[in-house]
Simulated assay, not measured.
Amino acid sequence: MSSPPSSARPHRLGLTGSIGAGKSTVAALLRERGLTVLDADEQARLVTLEPEVLAEIEAAFPGVVREGVLDRAALAAQVFGDPARLARLNGVVHPRVRARMLALETAAAARGEPWVVQDVPLLFEGGLERQMDAVLVVDAPLETRVARVVARSGLTRGEVLARDARQMPGEEKRRRATVVLDNGGGLEALEAQLDAALARLGVTAAGAPARPE
């Protein structure tokens, strides 16, 4: 794929995966390769530091903002498993996150970057794959994913399974992916798969020669 002019938007590489699959590891590897990674979760955290957003969240979910700071656990307890409440929260946060992501993408275009990575945990669930030029899905066996999350978070196995069940099934994510990265093994194997995927898709960082289509 050829590089777009600086005035055009960069090509978008979507990055997603089920809980515990290793999406953050892949994001770090992409950064090491010189690509700009736009992290939707990070932008959501920054959005919820804004006083006007905190005021809207507190109005919708009383008791979740304490001394000007969002109590994320209390908020999660109010919205988890309640689609109507979750939709209300998303209505406050998501438009602002999209605006931040677009601003960061515009800055990348101005720097002449041919590709940006959009790291979005619920990319398929939100219908955002239609806005991507290609999508990487990171996957791993269920028990491997559960063990990773339990080890790093302190959640119980049941809690991890409950969270996983509320996401799109891994089989469907794999079906919709442009490329699937199997992260059931070691880092070396994951890196080899990633480099092969980037070569196949023609994904390059700023200053790297573009591959022909």
Rank of each mutant, 00 (worst) to 15 (best):
E129V: 02
E129P: 03
E129D: 13
E129W: 03
Q131S: 14
Q131Y: 12
M132C: 13
M132P: 05
M132A: 13
A134H: 04
V135H: 12
V135W: 04
V135N: 05
V135I: 13
V135L: 12
L136N: 07
L136A: 11
V137S: 01
V137L: 07
V137F: 03
V138R: 13
V138S: 15
V138N: 13
D139P: 02
D139R: 03
A140P: 06
A140F: 08
P141K: 04
P141L: 10
L142F: 11
L142H: 11
L142S: 12
E143G: 12
T144S: 14
T144N: 12
R145L: 01
R145I: 03
R145E: 01
R145F: 00
V146H: 09
V146G: 07
A147V: 00
A147G: 07
R148H: 06
V149T: 08
V150D: 00
A151Y: 02
A151L: 11
A151I: 06
A151W: 07
R152T: 10
R152H: 09
R152E: 10
S153F: 04
G154R: 05
L155N: 08
L155D: 05
T156D: 05
T156I: 06
T156S: 15
R157S: 09
G158W: 06
G158N: 09
G158Y: 05
G158E: 15
E159G: 11
E159F: 08
V160C: 02
L161H: 00
L161R: 03
R163I: 10
R163C: 08
R166Q: 15
R166G: 11
Q167G: 09
Q167F: 12
Q167P: 08
P169E: 10
P169G: 08
P169M: 09
G170Q: 11
E171C: 13
E172Q: 10
E172W: 00
R174C: 03
R174K: 15
R175D: 14
R175F: 14
R176A: 03
R176W: 01
R176I: 02
A177G: 05
T178V: 04
T178H: 05
T178W: 03
